[in-house]
Amino acid sequence: MEILQSDVLQIRQPEDIVLVRTAVRKIAIASKLGLVDQTKLVTAASEIARNTLDYGLGGEVRVDMVRDARTGVRLTFTDEGPGIPDLERAMTDGWTSGKGMGLGLSGTRRLMDEFQIASKVGEGTTVTIAKWSR
């Protein structure tokens, strides 16, 4: 997989989520994603960025425009927060650790073409999501 363009954004305060959305929208348009796919990607980015801020206590996101067979956008969110003890349960519809509606991770996965999550208690969480142009 070839990386055509890459950028790193900090997620430290609620206003940063808006900046992440704007940056992701821009790169989604450049990657020739359709309007619906753009919207799905930006929404997913907003959800994960908020998780990074609320549960991961802040972190960063790498925004990549990638090319494999097609072009697409890949986002990698990393934080050094407390981590998620039970990933499987966290991925279930309806599960929430606090103020969310319990759709965060499982709902976001449905919006994406690719979704990976890795987490270690005490070390942090990495979420990688990708959407390909059709």
């Binding site: 619906v36 753009q38 919207t39 799905k40 929404t43 759709l103 499982s106 709902g107 449905r110 919006l111």
Partner: peptide, 12 residues
Amino acid sequence: PAVAITLVELGL
């Protein structure tokens, strides 16, 4: 429309 489709997929 794109927002509505996304919300349904998200489960909201």
